[in-house]
Simulated scan of single mutants.
Amino acid sequence: MDAAPHGGEGAALPPETVLMAQLGARRAELREALGQLVAEGLIVRRRGLGTRVVGEHSPMDLCIPGPGTSLECHLGAGAVSPHVVSWSWVRSTPAPIATRLRGVTSGDRTLRIDYVFHLGDEPIGVITNYVRAVEAGRLDRSEFTADFYSIIGAASATGLGAHDLVLNASRADEFVAAVLGIAPGDPVTAMDQVIRNTDGDGIVVAFMHFRSDVRLQISGIPRVTADRAGSEAGAPPPAARPAWGGF
């Protein structure tokens, strides 16, 4: 059985009854063939989501904003959308997070926002943000419909500046696994981010986990030279428009 005739990466396969009729196969034979495709990493089957062609990756383009980059590049094109699952104040910010936020100690409050990225109806990533109180007090949950950067940029008195980003391989804990529909311990792509204002102050710490079949392609990163980090002299700031964006 070949998954290719049923569409490219991300395409949904027909129901089993339709495939049985198309292939002239019995249910046991069909399920054995589908199991082989799963084992080869060519399709993925999830309860409630059906069977989809995954090929090598499900490509997702990202864009990290910088000075002079329009936040509109993060208004995802297509069916990617954030779904807020938690919006609550943390009375005592954990020390490892507080140390990355300017002017925040482990005894201070921060706003924790958990949301899930969906591609259509399928969850592909879960993001946890800790927002400094001064910016959090200006946020309106009802305005978070497409792009986190837009609302945090509006809440910052000086606007958004540079960002720190750490990318590493990890494994899903029980919370991430439950949200993404995978098993605890399954591999995920993890990203830690500090969002800064134009004064260089850390105002948000974000922890992101994406399914391992999601390829994260970050475009428009300035060249790093021996004496300074940034774009080449005279080069305009990166303004790549992704297929979808934002964390």
Rank of each mutant, 00 (worst) to 15 (best):
S106P: 03
D114L: 06
E40Y: 06
A133I: 09
V53H: 07
E40N: 07
M191V: 15
R52V: 07
G35D: 00
E29V: 11
P123F: 01
E29C: 00
L119Y: 08
L62M: 12
A172T: 00
D199S: 15
A169P: 06
D192L: 12
R100P: 02
Q22C: 08
S88K: 10
S170T: 08
P242V: 04
A172E: 05
T51I: 10
V224A: 09
D213G: 03
M20G: 11
S231T: 11
T198F: 06
A169S: 15
G24P: 03
D147K: 00
A136S: 01
Y149H: 08
G35A: 01
T93H: 04
V104A: 10
A11G: 06
T198S: 10
V53A: 09
R27S: 14
H118S: 08
P242S: 08
M191I: 14
G234V: 05
V126Y: 00
P15F: 00
S219G: 14
P237T: 02
L13M: 04
H6I: 09
R228Y: 10
G246C: 07
F175A: 12
L139A: 10
G7W: 04
I64Q: 07
D192F: 09
R26N: 11
V90L: 10
G78N: 03
I113K: 01
W89L: 10
L75A: 13
R228W: 05
R215E: 14
A178Q: 06
A25M: 13
D114M: 07
A206V: 04
V194D: 05
S70E: 00
L30P: 07
G68I: 02
S92E: 15
P222E: 01
I124F: 08
